[in-house]
Design a protein around this nucleic acid. Sequence first.
DNA 1: AAGGAGGTCAACCGCTGGATG
DNA 2: CCATCCAGCGGTTGACCTCCT
Length: 261
Amino acid sequence: MMRSLLSDCGSSATYGSEEHMVMKKGSWTEEEDSVLINYVNVYGEGHWNSIASIAGLKRTGKSCRLRWLNYLRPNVRRGNITLHEQLLILYLYFRWGNRWSKIAEELPGRTDNEIKNYWRTRVLKQAKQLKCDVNSKQFRDTMRLVWIPRLMEQIQASSSHGHSQTTMFSNTQTHTEPCVTIPTMFSVPTSDNISYNLMGGGCSFSSSLDSLEKGSISTPCILQQKNYSKVEEVEPSTDFGGADLWTDENICFLQQLLADD
DNA sequence: AAGGAGGTCAACCGCTGGATG
DNA sequence: CCATCCAGCGGTTGACCTCCT
């Protein structure tokens, strides 16, 4: 496919040929974005080196791929990460570790790069502030057993008072601004063999801590159904959708929890 | 107003594994 | 089976921005 694309376009470019061309680095210009979008629309995703070559972009295939996936691709969601997403990232990190692309699969529209940046700039920073290793059992248990359920209760309480969880999409191509609604139903194990189901909406989930550690648990409903990715035409909300888990109050609460341990 | 510190995030780097010839 | 190419991944960097002094 790769080679057929090249031959179709009469290009002799190969990966190695980049060495002989001065490749541009740094920020992308609007013109480059436009060229890349046009060529991806014609040839589809993939074959990035070929696209870079035939489009006349002095960029590596890697650079084109990254620019497309993290910025130009339709439905890329940008901006504040919602509380739900923050919780999901926490939960999924404890399940998958630093497999960012895997985590990103569960957050439609979010890129692995964005999630990775969030984790490193927010979560790691706060763990540092708590004088706690983010991978320590103490931190993980505190998060999993107390912190995540507590936050979900707060979200549920807020939701039941008329709040909604919405997140703005930003699409640099079309400038349309649809919203995605994320259901509040989300269950996680809170203690050995005890299921914790916030919404009680027909999806429960139970597991032992051991099985969670080993990653052998069944996927919680929010992950299985994936209906939260459904785009709905709802009014943008100014609620806590863009709020941060790591408020001073929450950090203080966590410090007490970790101190108690 | 200036500049230093810290935070954010787009982009790059190096590596790995799968595909292909 | 081997060599090469390339996509994809996680870690890292650096430009830019904001806030504070």
